[in-house]
Each structure stands twice: as structure tokens, then as C-alpha cells.
């Protein structure tokens, strides 16, 4: 079953008097339960696409069906509700709330979903941060912060994890650690993961690789034998 079915999706931004087309009539189907990498250079429209899929922004035209529901017709309130219930975000710059500890950052998400503190603790344990729950973001390393961010995204058991270059700001070893964590979650929770990167090596761990170029889909390829994150080298 398709998680997302995208039809003629277009997004244009107005910059000054000029118009910039970030996505140009994209048509895509993303199946459920897969680790999908969206590959592309800077400015290819990856982040714009993921923002549309996660109801973080509205398209200029086109439709996005989440299962069978067109999410582009949602009101602002419904979009908020949709994000809280179905989507987990992992950002490149972690985006943890600096006033909350690691546990509280995850709790912010679980409380929104009506889950308990235990769920937050479990998520942190899953990313190997049981010992660092009471630390504030400023007291954690980049890798730890990103793992808290992943825990925050998965704690509410979303239908899909949208990861916007989560290894972009990390060193190689920490990046591998984050990839492993995501792979493990994919395996254990059977979550669908959409992973944005410009790193072709990372694309090798995916089930499906979608390549974007200048706001259009350049290719879609299925990976019959995805490698393990430990085998990735860049």
C-alpha cells in the first residue's frame, strides 16, 4: 500500500519580484514501511518536498494523498493535528528545545500524542541515551542531540519519520551511529522512513532511492540489497 501518492505537486516561492519553482509537477508513489532516501544536490527541492509531505508547508498546486486522504486540502488546524499524530521529524540542526532536558524534549512530543513519560524514556533508551535524560541540549554532544531528536520523533509512534539531512551536521562516526539508530528503529518499529541526503553513499542503505534535480524527479531506483550503516564510507 502507498504511504504517499503525489500528483503534479508544484511549489513556487516569490523572492522579491521573481518567482522560484522549488518543485515542478512532481508525481511519485512512496510505499509504506520502506526506508526511502531522497537524494539530490542543494536546491534540488528535497527539503521542500519533505515539508509538503509533513504538512509543514502548503503546495502551490497538486495533491498529496496520505494513504487515501488528500492532505493538501487540510485546514491549518487539521494539518497541526496530522503532524502530531502521524509524522516524526528529525532535522539537520537537531532543533531541540533548549529550555527542556533531553527527557522533557521527548516528553513534549509524547504528551502531545497523549502518551506517558514511560514512552519517552523507552524512546531515549532505544537510541542509547538512558544515562543522559536529565541533561539540557547545551550539555550534550551533536550526536547525542541528534539521537534525542530521533527519540523525540519516534516516541509517539508516528506512521512515518521524515529526516532532513540528519547526519549533515555530524562527523563520520557520529553520523554512522545516527544511521544505525534509524535503521534499528526501522527494523524494530516497522516505521516508514524518508531520509533526505545529498550523500550518495548514505543512499546505499535505503530500500528505495528517489533522486531529485532542479525540482523534478530524475530517477527512482529500488535497492535490492541495502548495505548496513557500518559499511557506509564517506
Amino acid at each position: 500500500m502507498n504511504l504517499f501518492s503525489i500528483k503534479d505537486l508544484t511549489k513556487e516561492y516569490g523572492v522579491g519580484g521573481a518567482k522560484v519553482t522549488a518543485l515542478n509537477k512532481i508525481n511519485l508513489s512512496i510505499p509504506e514501511g520502506k526506508f526511502v532516501v531522497i537524494l539530490g544536490a542543494s536546491g534540488s527541492g528535497k527539503s521542500t518536498l519533505i515539508n509538503m509531505l509533513g504538512c509543514m508547508d502548503t503546495p502551490t498546486s497538486g495533491a498529496i494523498n496520505f494513504y487515501k486522504t488528500d492532505i493538501t486540502t487540510f485546514s491549518k488546524h487539521k494539518m497541526t493535528h496530522f503532524r502530531g499524530e502521524n509524522i516524526g521529524f528529525v532535522f539537520q540542526s537537531y532543533n531541540l528545545l533548549p529550555d527542556l532536558t533531553a527527557l522533557e524534549n521527548v516528553e513534549f512530543s509524547t504528551e502531545l500524542a497523549g502518551l506517558s513519560r514511560k514512552d519517552a524514556e523507552n524512546a531515549l533508551s532505544l537510541v542509547g541515551l538512558s544515562e543522559r535524560v536529565n541533561h539540557y541540549p547545551a550539555e550534550l554532544s551533536g550526536g547525542e542531540q541528534q539521537r534525542v531528536s530521533i527519540a523525540r520523533a519516534i516516541a509517539k509512534n508516528p506512521k512515518v519519520l521524515l529526516c532532513d539531512e540528519p547526519t549533515g551536521a555530524l562527523d563520520f562516526n557520529t553520523g554512522i551511529m545516527v544511521l544505525e539508530a534509524l535503521k534499528q528503529i526501522h527494523k524494530e518499529k516497522k516505521s516508514s522512513i524518508l531520509f533526505i541526503t545529498h550523500n550518495q553513499e548514505i543512499a546505499k542503505i535505503a530500500d528505495i532511492v528517489i533522486t531529485l534535480r532542479s525540482g523534478e524527479v530524475q530517477s527512482i531506483s529500488k535497492n535490492s540489497a541495502p548495505i548496513s550503516p557500518t559499511e557506509v564510507i564517506w
Binding site: R83, N95, L97, L112
Partner: peptide, 14 residues
């Protein structure tokens, strides 16, 4: 601004 964006992304209502 960015923190508010994150909260919104996580599904926090206005």
C-alpha cells in the same frame, strides 16, 4: 522563531 517552528512541526497547536 525557530523553536516555535519546531513546536509547530511536532504538532503543538497555536
Amino acid at each position: 522563531r525557530k523553536q516555535i517552528g519546531v513546536m509547530k512541526a511536532m504538532g503543538a497547536s497555536d
